[in-house]
Amino acid sequence: MPTAIIADDERLMRDQLRMRLEQVWPELEILGEAKNGDEAIELVDQLKPDFTFLDIRMPGKTGMEAATVIGSKSNIVFVTAYDAYAVEAFERGAIDYVLKPSEPERLKITVDRLKERLNKPATPDVSASVTALLSQLTEKISAPKPSHLQWIQASIGQDLRMIPVEEILFFRSDEKYTCVQTERYEALIRKPVRDLAEELDPKLFWQIHRATLVNVNAIEGVTRDIRGRHLVMIKGRSDKLEVSRSFLHLFKQM
């Protein structure tokens, strides 16, 4: 029975990849999970899996850095969300990859490749190619990240979506979850509004309440209700979002 471990700092992403792998490769046994590169290296040494699914970006030791240590101990499969240059390199290289959130159709292609590789020992040429590819990608991955969030990972039922922040109309929190509202659907995340306010571009998202962030481009106008509360109207929707007094200054010129 083929074996694997999954390394990703996001628990939802680990759960989703495990579920998708069970669907497309039920014979694959997941031996363990890691939250960072250091844990992945330890698991590979302890469990000796055939395959290691490594998220490229993780706190501490990244997936790229972990891969250089793991070397030929396990077949590396990188998990990437939006590193287009990495995907292009993987298509040409000897390392496989999974786009996240993982979709069954694309994952099936990866699984078919991995099955072919199971009984093929790595040749010196392939090992050299992998080493060179890791070196190039590590250099690019080390480049500074964008200063503001570009994507939001949010759950919709059992699925996980990567939502570009430009598509989000507003965020609204309750005691446990934060609702992520787009034109087409509603999703949930656990990150509170106060954290999102620090990570999103303040020119694109205004905090109008301790529990609400709104996309400036989605604002149609501001109205008052019979109680005198100021409410933000959202383009094309019936939602009206309350504005706290401390944030009314944002709308003085509107």
Rank of each mutant, 00 (worst) to 15 (best):
Q153M: 15
P101H: 04
E33G: 08
V165E: 04
K48H: 15
S238I: 10
K120T: 15
F53I: 12
S129E: 15
P164Q: 12
Y177E: 09
I141W: 02
D8K: 10
S244K: 13
H230S: 15
S72C: 07
S74H: 04
G157T: 06
G221E: 02
D112A: 12
R11S: 12
S127V: 10
L250Q: 14
I70K: 07
A34N: 13
M1Q: 03
V180E: 01
S102D: 07
T178H: 01
K252M: 14
S74F: 05
L160M: 15
E42N: 04
E175P: 00
I152Y: 04
Q150A: 08
A67Q: 06
F170E: 00
L250Y: 11
P146R: 02
A4G: 11
R210S: 10
A218I: 03
K252V: 15
E27I: 01
D225R: 02
Q181D: 01
E199W: 01
I189E: 02
V44L: 09
E105V: 14
P124F: 06
A197V: 06
M19Q: 13
A81N: 02
A143M: 13
A154L: 02
A66C: 14
I109W: 06
L99S: 09
A84S: 11
T110N: 04
H209W: 11
A89E: 12
I30L: 13
E242I: 14
T52G: 04
D38L: 13
A34T: 13
F170M: 00
M19F: 13
D83F: 09
E33F: 05
D9R: 02
K203M: 09
Q16I: 11
I70Q: 07
R210Q: 14
E220S: 12
S246H: 13
K191F: 02
E91T: 05
S135P: 00
T110I: 05
R237S: 02
L43Q: 14
P104H: 01
S155P: 00
H209V: 13
P101M: 07
P2M: 06
K252P: 08
L133N: 04
K235Q: 14
E65V: 08
V126E: 15
Y97K: 01
V222Y: 09
Q207H: 07
K61P: 10
D45H: 14
A218D: 03
S74V: 07
E175K: 10
E103P: 03
I5N: 07
D159K: 13
P192V: 06
E183A: 10
E167A: 05
L248S: 14
L241T: 11
I234F: 04
V44N: 07
E88C: 02
E91N: 12
R210W: 08
K108I: 03
A89R: 11
A4P: 08
I234A: 05
M233A: 10
R210D: 05
I234W: 02
K73F: 05
R172V: 03
L12C: 04
E91I: 02
I76N: 10
S173Q: 07
N75V: 15
M254V: 08
I109F: 06
L169M: 05
K145T: 04
R190E: 14
E42Y: 03
L21I: 09
L43N: 10
I234L: 05
R194S: 10
L250N: 09
Q136T: 08
P2I: 06
V24L: 12
K140V: 00
D96F: 11
L248C: 14
L28V: 10
A84K: 10
V69L: 11
